[in-house]
């Protein structure tokens, strides 16, 4: 039974650490599918986490925090859109800029407003998204297998976890079953064709970038209001880039994106759990190697050794209307 419990805990941890990756990954999916590369996911998530925790601390409401997180992340996304869509600037450069602006300003403003060394005040009660116990979870607890899966793994997460996983089928539906999704994918492959059909490339791409902002904001809020009780400086710690890696790993598709995030989340959870443990045959695996594994896997994938990751064709190229 100890093994089953350990396994359940590991899966539970995997789900919790995968959520921000998943939200950021789906965020990047919208933007990149529309032809706007976004390496600023990290920065938007960080700014969202800070804005969310600050607003939740001041207002005492997690929902206000979430709203503020989304608002700030969308603002940064609009800056990215303004630079890369309106002014046809280099999308990579713009993303890098946003990462730095977010990294610096969260620390500076955090210190100035709360004077706690870049932290925000600890959140509790209604200022946090608490774990939700799904109906019947307690009643089913003693049922073998199903009880464990339902009450331990499915029940008992915060609302944002369910939102994140519901976003997967929703994103799939939006991208592949709606007119907006068709156009979004088209504008990432061949914006000239979309333009010829009389649809505004600019407005379409702006909508994609705004969606990216919304989802990175939720990801940030999850980090600082749900998973943790407040903002700590640099709390995203490269998650935005791991999400980017997952997006490439999933070849810009929503359902594979979920599995890629769960895989990278599992690596993270396992590296914490099995730190310093000696394995049969291979011996002790350095924790640094496990931490680097998502990046190594992505490079191997990008090199074309595990299938081929083909990005949207118009990705990174500003659209210039012929004149």
């Amino acid at each position: 039974m100890a093994f089953v419990d350990a396994l359940a805990q590991l899966i539970d941890a995997t789900i919790r650490v995968s959520v921000p990756l998943l939200l950021a990954c789906l965020a990047g999916l919208y933007s990149e599918r529309s032809g706007i590369f976004d390496i600023g996911l990290e920065g938007k998530m960080l700014a969202g986490a800070f804005a969310g925790a600050s607003a939740a601390a001041v207002s005492g409401s997690a929902w206000v925090g979430l709203g503020m997180a989304i608002l700030i992340a969308v603002c940064l996304a609009l800056v990215h859109g303004f630079a890369s869509i309106t002014h046809r600037g280099n999308q990579i450069v713009s993303g890098v800029a946003i990462n730095f602006i977010a990294a610096g300003s969260t620390i500076i403003l955090g210190q100035a407003w709360f004077s706690q060394g870049g932290r925000t005040p600890p959140l509790s009660g209604p200022a946090r998204f608490e774990a939700i116990t799904l109906p019947g979870a307690d009643a089913l607890r003693d049922v073998p297998v199903i009880g464990l899966i339902y009450s331990e793994l499915i029940s008992g997460h915060s609302i944002l976890v369910y939102v994140a996983f519901l976003m997967v089928p929703l994103t799939w539906w939006v991208l592949f079953r709606t007119r907006f999704g068709l156009r979004l994918r088209a504008v990432g492959e061949n914006p000239a064709a979309v333009d010829t059909a009389g649809i505004s490339v600019t407005w379409l791409r702006y909508r994609a970038v705004i969606l990216t902002g919304v989802l990175t904001g939720v990801a940030g809020a999850y980090l600082s209001i749900a998973q943790n009780a407040g903002f700590v400086k640099d709390m995203t710690a490269g998650k935005g880039f791991i999400a980017l890696a997952a997006l490439i790993f999933a070849k810009w598709k929503p359902v594979p994106a979920m599995f890629a995030c769960l895989l990278f989340g599992f690596l993270d959870a396992a590296s914490i759990r099995f730190q310093g443990m000696a394995w049969p045959v291979i011996g002790k695996v350095p924790v640094q190697l496990v931490n680097a594994l998502p990046f190594i896997l992505t490079i191997i994938l990008l090199a074309g050794f595990i299938g081929k990751a083909i990005p949207p064709r118009a990705g990174g190229v500003p659209y210039v209307k012929e004149r």
Binding site: G89, A97, I98, I108
Partner: peptide, 23 residues
Amino acid sequence: NISRDMIVIIQGLVILFAGALEH
């Protein structure tokens, strides 16, 4: 209140205005 991280912001702004919004 203005720690060294202010430079990170300036760095980001320079990259934004001299790079992405160059024109």
